[in-house]
Amino acid sequence: MSSWLDRIKPSVIRSESKTRGNIPEGVWKKCPKCGSALYLPELSKNLDVCPKCSHHLRVNARRRAEIFLDPGYEELSENLKPDDLLKFKDTKKYKDRLAAAQKSTDEDDALLTFKGSLQGLDVVIAAFEFNFMGGSMGSVVGGKFVQAVNCCIEEHRALVCFSASGGARMQEALISLMQMAKTSAALEKLKEARLPYVSVMTDPVFGGVSASLAMLGDVNIAEPNALIGFAGPRVIEQTVREKLPEGFQRSEFLLEHGAIDMIVGRASLRSTIYSLLSMLTIKELVSVSHANEDESASSDASASNPE
């Protein structure tokens, strides 16, 4: 597990000195936190985590599925597409904002859902697309989420949601607020079916998404250093007129205040969530030899517990 580090570390350091201030497009990316120039193929191999400072870069929804699920998963609810029911217009028409977001992300809306497996366990995942209007929740996001929950109930699967969202989508006004009720109601049904729900909060999660589906996990997890809260830091600063404490609304703050169960780095998400789901759903392992058959499971698990 440490070999990749040794392999890429020197290359990054060397290349950084060569390309400082002149990062060629397409192959290199600058870490938004430490500013290091990162070689894209290596960054990708490292699950979009900066090898120098461990900053977790945002990943899009499709990539999330790719790095989390076993190969061979299937997208759900592909037919759900957004609609401008209110004919909403601010400085731009909502219809035009939708079209622009669809063009830039190549997705229909801000949530993608998939069914597949995690080291052999049947799961459904929901992943927010933050690049699509800030991952905001409108009726399609709510609708897809409910269909994902329904799939879990029908096929007896666990649900894992990766949230990254600024909150409810203003352009759908009260309809978007009602998505909070819709998704939360569906999660209560999942709970009644005794199926586990793991909520993984990734940078950032705010407003209506934070105050509904994201906080309702049987287990709440956050990626390191993600910004998570109800009200945005600027709004709070304007309201209370004082400087916010260092680390306010970061994952570590949430852990300290009891809002989440654990902070898990991206490289360990698969093994940690597998372990949780496995213990919640498989009450007794049948035999040791059977457990050893799943090689990827045991090697992944040991990697996440390096004590």
Binding site: M180, S184, S212, A214, M215, G229, F230
Partner: peptide, 23 residues
Amino acid sequence: PGIGAEERGQSEAIARNIAVMSR
């Protein structure tokens, strides 16, 4: 929207009420 409200889990409090009321 305040510091104490965030510390004590404003999001969770709202989410929980919505979920509980739905059932």
